[in-house]
């Protein structure tokens, strides 16, 4: 016979919390490799030098014409498509591990960057984006006017 230990509501919530924590601990242990697989495509790293940001994103098989990069203020969006060869019927595949499809990722840069000066390079299936920061101008005096009656 099972003995049911009654817990007051608050304690039950605490128990739920503990269970969720356990679940997350478990998930973190197990899922590193899994995470590599289901995370958004493409994964990217962001770097900083005094005057630039650099984005590095592995995207094997993506051709320059399949890639679109836009920068608006500090919001950077990269989108594109990765395809399997057109002429191969799906039933010919014995193994399909590579992710394909349309993708889009948006990055909020820590500060505004100069959209006109962004340069992109795709090499060996890795995208390198060089994003110059907006040069800090001189402090600008703002004229305060009073509305004359």
């Amino acid at each position: 016979m099972n003995i049911w230990t009654w817990r007051p509501t608050l304690d039950a919530l605490g128990e739920l919390q503990r269970q969720v924590d356990r679940l997350f601990d478990f998930t973190q242990d197990v899922s590193r490799q899994l995470y590599q697989a289901w995370r958004q495509f493409p994964a990217f790293n962001l770097y900083e030098t005094p005057n630039e940001f650099w984005l590095l994103a592995p995207m094997p098989g993506v051709r320059p014409e399949d890639l679109d990069v836009t920068l608006l203020g500090s919001t950077l969006t990269i989108r594109g498509e990765r395809k399997r060869p057109d002429q191969v019927p799906e039933e010919a595949y014995r193994r399909m591990e590579r992710w394909v499809g349309k993708w889009s990722r948006t990055v909020q840069l820590p500060e505004s960057a100069d959209a006109d000066k962004v340069s992109a390079l795709l090499e060996n299936g890795v995208l390198y984006l060089r994003i110059p920061k907006v040069s800090e101008g001189q402090p600008r005096q703002v004229q305060v006017k009073t509305s004359s009656p």
């Binding site: 592995p58 995207m59 094997p60 595949y93 399909m96 590579r98 060996n124 299936g125």
Partner: peptide, 24 residues
Amino acid sequence: YTPPLDIHETPEGLVLEADLPGVP
């Protein structure tokens, strides 16, 4: 890392494609 790969069959044989980004 274990590179992900696709394998498909053609009348002449097998074609294997593997993702190895960043490898010169």
